[in-house]
Structure formats: structure tokens, C-alpha cells
Computed example of a mutant assay.
Amino acid sequence: MSTPSAARDRVLDTATRLFYAEGIHAVGVDRIVTEAGVTRATFYRHFPSKEELVRSYVEHWDAGVRAQVAAAFPGLTADRALELFVTRLGEEMCRPGFRGCPFINAAAEYPDAASPVAQAIAAHRAWLRALFVRVLAELGVGEPEQRAGMLMLLRDGAMVGAALGEPAVVAGQLAAAVRAVAAA
């Protein structure tokens, strides 16, 4: 792992923008180097390989999601936390440039479960599922583990559905489905 620097941040920010907008395999190192305004030597000093950059990209998204959750959820009741999750996900799906879930997109390009990229994706998903279990348990919902799996499926399906169809419709359907899972 390289030490933080302005050049490293520029590379990661550039890769994040390009990977999300165009796809990971569609964007080469040369383009990232050029758009980030760094040399190839600087790039490779911070990221020994493109796969290392992709792993960092996934972990960067994960850190951002966790920070948003940490900032939004303190002091919230479980039912309000679940409603906030649905609202924020719906807003994300409806924003311009939405291309689906960055984790699902990366998983499609890195299917080998043993790769560091896939492991970073799995770590994010395990954290999110555990968050759902905790919120559902606090709500007193029966079988919180099973229902957290349902919420993961709903979230995944909504992210893909919104990227392929009508985001506002999908956001409304997600909200209704999450409420049904929590109320059942």
C-alpha cells in the first residue's frame, strides 16, 4: 500500500470517475495517467498494477459508503434508518450519470472470487448485509438474517433495474418492497 499523496489521490479520483462511467476494462492505465496528470512512474509507485488500482477503487467506494452511513445513522431509530437507506438509495439511482452499483459492475469484470478485487467487493457486501441484520434485529423483525438477504437482493435488483430502466419507478418499488420485508 502506498502512502497518501496528492498524486495518488488524483490517480484514484480519476480512476473512480472513469471506471464508474465507462467500465474498468474499458479504461487503460495510459488514459488514467494522462487525465490524472502524473507520470507512469508515479502511477506504478502508488499502484504496482492496474488490479491494485481497481482494488483501491473498490475500497475507496466502500469507505465512502461507510462514512455516509456513519454520518447519517447515529441516533436514528432502526425504522428511521431503514427509511433513510431507501430514500438515499432512491436519490442515488435517480441522479444524472447513474450507471448502477459500482460493486456489482466491478464484480462483473472481476469474477474470480480469489482476486483481491473480488475480495474487496465481498468485504463491502458482508458489511452491508451485517448492517441490514442489525437494523432488522433492532426493529424486532423475525429472522433478521434471512430478511437481510432479502434486502440485499432487493438492493441489488433495484440498482440494476434503475440502471437499465426507469429509476424513479424502481425507487418507488424498492421502497414498497423494503417496507413489506420489514413489516412481514
Rank of each mutant, 00 (worst) to 15 (best):
V135Y: 04
L151G: 04
R147F: 02
L164P: 05
E145Y: 01
V141K: 11
A177M: 13
R155L: 14
E145Q: 14
V169K: 14
E145H: 12
P144G: 06
R147W: 00
A162S: 03
M152I: 13
A148T: 10
L154Q: 00
Q146T: 14
W127G: 09
V169F: 14
L153W: 11
Q146L: 14
G140E: 00
G157D: 02
V160P: 02
Q173V: 14
A148Y: 08
E166C: 11
P167S: 01
G172C: 01
V133N: 00
A162D: 00
L154R: 07
L174P: 09
D156V: 02
V169G: 09
G149L: 01
L164W: 07
Q146K: 13
A158E: 02
A148E: 06
E145T: 12
R134C: 06
D156I: 05
V169M: 15
V160T: 15
E143C: 09
V170W: 04
P167L: 07
L153Y: 10
L153F: 11
V170L: 00
A130F: 04
V170Q: 05
A176C: 07
A176I: 03
L151D: 04
L151T: 07
A158R: 02
A177P: 09
L174R: 02
R129P: 00
M152V: 15
A168T: 12
R147Q: 10
L164G: 01
